[in-house]
Design a protein around this nucleic acid. Structure first.
Length: 338
DNA sequence: CGGTTTTGACCGGCGC
DNA sequence: GCGCCGGTCAAAACCG
């Protein structure tokens, strides 16, 4: 009984957490950078303010894009688009139900360097880990080794031996939340948990339960700021979100109550970033993202798009004064700095 | 009963 | 070659 209630409480928390601040990072954003973020933010409980604290160090960056995320997409589509594509160029456009991405190849000439992080030595911490299984799940279908080794090894799945594994595109974001596993609209099955070195918090591994969808995600809590949850998506969903059959990205007219309104996008190590170290996009209500055809996060974190009407969330916003989150961060930021 | 979580064991990559 | 570590597997337990 208690456990069930716990479970439900967890679910509720999930909902709540959707209202919390979220920072998006892409593939090669080193964990250490996360810490940099969080360190600047006091460990205040989940309040929208914290995200701004977290953004502070990057204000000077954002100010390059003082336009804000939207503006970037709006007026500077090339900029926004290419950056995003940069991040995901490793894979063909996701099979998103809504809109196909423009061909990355055409937009992003130089792709590989995007993954390098000149700024941070241990940028590998988050992304250099082995991703074999990611390909595994997607490409293993017709592989010869599968049968062979399946018999040879009693339990462990065959990993490709000689094959150099390709990296799945990754997409990480930080969320200030009390719950680790954020409900993003997809169904996940936990398949592992590991203790994280130098961190009291374990890392959980999830896999999308949809057949044929090899998307995985890792969830871990920042050791420096326990209120921050780092979620890393790996791979691309080959199906629309279960809760929104049509994958209604961009259908958030009433974005007002959308929780992740203050989400800020930090794009990773693109050539651009070599100058700036990091990008942060203060997104206005996420929806704009989607209305613009150029933005199509491969993982389409559906909580950005679809959790909007989560009953409880909407009311929680009001109840807990989280409406402030809804105010485009851009607006809020504009005032003090400049 | 089917799906999910837990958890210990195992594997491969990498650094020394 | 060895040990560490991140990631995965899969049986058992748990849950609805």
């Amino acid at each position: 009984m208690e456990k069930r209630e716990d479970h439900h409480r967890q679910m509720m928390k999930n909902e709540i957490s959707m209202a919390n601040s979220t920072t998006f990072i892409t593939e090669e954003m080193p964990i250490t950078s996360f810490s940099a973020f969080s360190s600047s933010s006091s460990t205040t409980p989940t309040t929208s303010a914290s995200i701004f604290d977290m953004m502070m160090p990057y204000d000077h960056i954002a100010d390059k894009a003082s336009l804000g995320f939207m503006d970037l997409l709006d007026g500077n589509q090339d900029f926004g688009t290419s950056l995003l594509l940069d991040c995901f160029q490793l894979q063909p456009p996701p099979i998103l139900p809504h809109q196909p991405l423009p061909s990355p190849a055409s937009t992003v000439p130089e792709s590989s360097e995007v993954l390098n992080t000149p700024a941070t030595p241990n940028s590998s911490s988050i992304s250099s880990s082995s991703n074999e299984a990611g390909n595994d799940s997607q490409a293993k279908a017709g592989d010869e080794e599968e049968q062979d080794q399946e018999k040879n090894k009693k339990q462990l799945k065959p990993k490709k031996k000689n094959q150099k594994r390709q990296r799945e595109p990754r997409f990480a974001f930080m969320t200030k939340s009390e719950v680790d596993h954020l409900d993003d609209g997809y169904r996940w099955r936990k398949y592992g948990q590991k203790a994280v070195k130098n961190s009291p918090f374990p890392r959980s591994y999830y896999r999308c339960t949809s057949a044929g969808c090899g998307v995985k995600k890792r969830v871990e809590r920042s050791s420096e700021d326990p209120t921050i949850v780092v979620t890393t998506y790996e791979g691309q969903h080959t199906h629309p979100s279960p809760i929104t059959p049509r994958g209604s990205i961009g259908l958030l007219p009433d974005s007002g109550c959308f929780g992740a309104a203050t989400s800020s996008f930090v794009l990773p190590q693109s050539h651009y970033q070599q100058q700036q170290n990091a990008y942060m996009y203060s997104s206005s209500p996420s929806l704009n993202i989607s209305t613009n055809s150029s933005f199509n996060p491969p993982f389409s974190p559906s909580f950005l798009q679809e959790r909007r009407l989560s009953h409880s969330s909407a009311s929680l916003f009001r109840d807990h004064g989280l409406l402030q989150d809804i105010v485009p961060s851009q607006m809020r930021k504009e005032t003090p700095e400049e």
